[in-house]
Design a protein around this nucleic acid. Structure first.
Length: 593
RNA sequence: GGUCCGUUAGCUCAACUGGAUAGAGCGCCUGCCUUCUAAGCAGGGGGUUUCAGGUUCGAGUCCUGAACGGAUCACCA
């Protein structure tokens, strides 16, 4: 039952029957009634006064009277200024509850037969993952789950940036200072080990620049002439030519990094369906450049470089291929886009990439459109803001980053401390307790990053850390655990949860059912808007509503049996929404905490 | 300098895409554990929505301009 469309249907009838001015139900929208007024749904009259030919109050009364008389689900109405507030019959809430309770996977849509590719994480192999990476990973993972629930077939991909000058920097310093050490010999996680050499490079490089400068060279020149950078460039050339020793070193070091990443991904609980490696894709796209030239979409400049003119879209001219015929980032991404579509013919392809690449993707999508790729319409850049520290931007080279592994570890420890302080780990096996800490720590962290609108930047203050109270993951997890206790008790008492008829609802109950009825719509919105934040905020509201209900309305001490059963059913439905909602944020919920 | 994004309570964020007196959480203050888990609930205080104009029945939301912050505009990725 969709209460909202029943109401808009009735209002639509009112317009054609009373005012002789038909308006389709789909063109009418309702909003939730503000708390201070009676009712649950509100219809705003102002936009329709020209059809009603009456003042707002009178128009509202007329429509309110009509729908109350024609629809059995509407109990009554009131008009305040130009707002028509509609009150709903308890029986409608009851039917709603029964319906939700009856389905197994409430919120899950049937397959829509469409495919979507979600690319995220996309790390460089010269340093470990940090807090910024966690945001794309959480966003991408969550979007994948939301879209799956919304009926898509989803393919999660990770495009690994495993080649280029930055990798050579780590390789070079390792060669010079590494003494053949390895993750095994040092006990250092592979990605961390490589990251150390990346930092080392920057340190030594800066020394060289300083020396050159003191010798009278200007800064720009010194940056170009420093021996280390020249060596790194030399190494990149060797790699591109397939020099055996260089490639062997590269392979060895990348393996170390991947072993490190695997551990981090596993802690997070994320998996990918398909990995792409830039070492395998960086030469792609040249055929598309040729195609574009043939079609007259691209043009050549005198020196032989290839460009696309996007001034008609208010953008600039953009380089597609260098004068020496080598690729740039855009060339590669064009090719990769085509490759992805060949491997996995998608209807939509989402790139979860930071907002510093807004321009790049704008251009990429326009190019694919100009090339006449029909799938270009389905390309989408899920652009997210940076995660900044109070001290400013995180910089791997300068070591001012919040490391992903360290941060998660701290979250686990914080969870343990809170749990111990509250004495809630009593009776738990050490193994169970550890699982709980991870669930809570990760829940707090994921929720913290996902509850904010993706496009906004996030300020992370390591000193304030991440809360476990209020609008947080643990709050929702706690609510779930509370309900679980109720369900357990109901089972021991052998209370059936068959919902009977003729229930008079407490306001808290009606509010909660109303909230639960919004779940499918929220999933749809979160999918269409590419915003897990919408879902996170919704789940928080559900948990808050449940806690209000829990506090005010007794369950087991209620005398009326039918109410006891209904309240347990309502609790169970809430638990299911919380669990599957959190699952879409990739957060697990505990049975006890 | 061009383009794009952002600016809402002391702090962190919402505001259903133009609707009612702008809402939550944190922190602060006051109550509530002898009834289902107090990581909770109830209440209080806290706002010229950066500023100046405009559009209309109605603007945090739309248009113009300004200020501040960020990103980007590489034959880097």
């Amino acid at each position: 039952m969709d209460i909202e469309s029943i109401i808009t249907g009735e209002i639509s009838k009112a317009f054609s029957e009373v005012f002789s001015h038909p308006i389709g139900a789909e063109d009418l929208s309702l909003q939730p009634t503000r708390r201070e007024f009676e009712g649950k749904y509100t219809f705003v009259i102002f936009p329709y006064l020209k059809y009603t030919q009456k003042n707002p109050e009178e128009s509202g009364r007329t429509i309110g009277e009509f729908v109350t008389q024609h629809s059995p689900i509407i109990k009554g109405y009131n008009v305040v200024k130009g707002f028509l507030n509609l009150e709903i019959e308890d029986d409608a809430w009851l039917q709603m509850l029964k319906e939700i309770y009856a389905v197994d996977n409430y919120g899950q849509s049937a397959s829509n037969g469409k495919n979507v590719m979600v690319e995220f994480s996309s790390p460089n192999t010269n340093k470990p993952l940090h807090l910024g990476h966690l945001r794309t990973i959480f966003l991408g993972d969550s979007m994948s789950r939301i879209l799956t629930t919304a009926g898509y077939e989803v393919n999660k991909t990770n495009l690994v940036n495993d080649r280029g000058i930055h990798i050579c920097k780590s390789m070079l310093t390792y060669q010079k200072y590494g003494n053949g050490e390895s993750p095994d010999s040092t006990g250092i996680k592979g990605d961390k080990l490589i990251g150390n050499y990346y930092v080392k490079f920057d340190k030594e490089y800066k020394k060289e620049i300083a020396e050159l400068e003191s010798g009278g060279m200007n800064t720009d020149e010194a940056k170009k002439q420093a021996p280390l950078i020249l060596e790194a460039q030399e190494m990149l050339k060797k790699w591109e030519m397939g020099d055996e020793a260089t490639v062997a070193l590269w392979e060895m070091m990348n393996e170390w990094v991947y072993a490190g990443f695997d551990i981090t991904y596993s802690t997070i609980g994320v998996t990918f369906d398909k990995f792409y490696y830039e070492s395998e894709t960086y030469l792609l796209g040249k055929n598309l450049v040729d195609e574009g030239l043939e079609k007259g979409i691209f043009f050549k400049k005198g020196n032989g470089s290839v460009w696309v003119d996007l001034t008609e879209y208010g953008l600039d001219e953009k380089l597609i291929l260098r004068a020496d015929g080598t690729s740039v980032y855009m060339t590669q991404d064009m090719g990769t886009c085509e490759l992805k579509h060949k491997n996995f013919p998608f209807d939509k392809s989402v790139y979860v990439v930071g907002n510093e690449q807004d321009y790049h993707f704008q251009v990429l999508f326009l190019i694919m459109k100009k090339l006449g790729r029909p799938y270009a319409e389905g390309l989408h850049h899920l652009s997210y803001g940076m995660v900044d520290l109070p001290t400013g931007k995180m910089k791997s080279r300068e070591g001012t980053v919040v490391d992903a592994d360290d941060l998660m570890q701290e979250m686990f420890e914080t969870a343990e401390r809170h749990t111990t302080d509250l004495g809630k780990n009593e009776g738990l096996e050490p193994k169970e307790a550890n699982e709980l800490y991870k669930m809570l720590g990760l829940g707090a962290l994921k929720y913290f990053l996902l509850r904010v609108d993706p496009k906004k930047r996030i300020l992370f203050d390591p000193i304030k850390s991440i809360d476990f109270h209020g609008d947080t993951g643990p709050f929702i997890q706690y609510t779930y655990a509370r309900i679980s206790a109720i369900i357990r008790r109901a089972k021991t008492l052998h209370i059936s949860t068959e919902v009977e008829d003729d229930i008079v609802f407490h306001k808290r109950e009606a509010d909660l059912i109303y909230q639960l009825s919004k779940f499918p719509e929220i999933i749809k919105d979160a999918g269409e808007d590419y915003s897990p934040a919408l879902l996170a905020q919704y789940i928080f509201d559900v948990a808050k509503d449940y806690n209000g209900f829990y506090q005010e309305v007794p369950i087991f001490s209620e005398d009326v049996k039918a109410l006891v059963k209904m309240r347990i059913a309502l609790s169970e439905v809430t638990a299911r929404v919380l669990k599957s909602g959190m699952a879409m944020l990739s957060i697990q919920v505990p049975e006890r905490m």
